[in-house]
């Protein structure tokens, strides 16, 4: 089920990914009550090295989202998904499973698809974040979005933005996918209404025409 594409979506699996995983963080955060004060990092000595420690209160953060700069004071335990949705009102990415199982929150981080619920906002600073909202330019849908419309690839539509972003990233990497590529490459997103038949046709349409 898992292939390279999927692994990249989970930052905790990636060897380059520094720091503490979200799950560890949630464990740590339970120890102390949140302090509503904004502060920069403290520096402590750990294993003979100087380490910067953020939190547990709010810390100032900066993001590059869809080519624009955003600033917010957030606790280090806040996920990228919650920052996007609750701080910046970019609600295209959806919160469904909130633990990297369904793909409804898929965004691009440095052009790679990532589950935004499984990445801490603090880790996403100074990276190029692309959300579904940026794919529509001047009111014109991106070809994959248009293909979703043409092939009725959404019903309730709650999984759709995540799927659209995942499909875009997939087609950027596999412009001429085989059915097996599609099967493997898009296994990281789930739909409840059952729109997979339309999504497959949408991908085929774009692959044929070229994005």
């Amino acid at each position: 089920m898992r292939d390279e594409d999927e692994n990249q979506k989970n930052p905790n699996d990636s060897p380059e990914s520094p720091g503490v995983s979200r799950r560890d963080f949630l464990k740590i955060s339970g120890i102390s009550v949140a302090v509503p004060l904004v502060a920069g990092p403290r520096v402590i000595k750990a294993a003979g090295q100087e380490v910067r420690v953020y939190g547990p209160g709010k810390v100032p953060m900066e993001f590059a989202i869809n080519g624009k700069n955003y600033k917010a004071n957030l606790e280090p335990r806040v996920t990228l998904l919650d920052a996007l949705r609750d701080e910046f009102e970019l609600t295209g990415a959806k919160r469904v499973c909130d633990r990297a199982e369904c793909g409804a929150c898929t965004v691009l981080v440095d052009n790679k698809p990532v589950y935004a619920c499984a990445m801490l906002a603090i880790e996403a600073q100074h990276k190029a974040i692309t959300t579904v909202e940026s794919l529509t330019r001047d009111g014109k849908l991106h070809p994959i979005q248009q293909a979703f419309v043409d092939n009725d690839a959404s019903q309730c539509g709650f999984c759709t933005p995540g799927f659209v972003v995942a499909c875009k990233a997939f087609l950027d990497k596999h412009p001429h996918p085989t059915p097996e590529d599609i099967r493997r490459g898009l296994s990281g997103n789930l739909c409840r209404c059952g729109t997979y038949a339309g999504i497959r046709k949408a991908i085929a349409q774009v692959a044929q025409k070229g994005a």
């Binding site: 295209g92 959300t131 979703f148 419309v149 009725d152 933005p161």
Partner: peptide
């Protein structure tokens, strides 16, 4: 085509 598809695919 479904009339609310465009806003759904756009995340809007």
């Amino acid at each position: 085509s479904r009339v609310d598809s465009p806003v759904k695919v756009a995340g809007q």
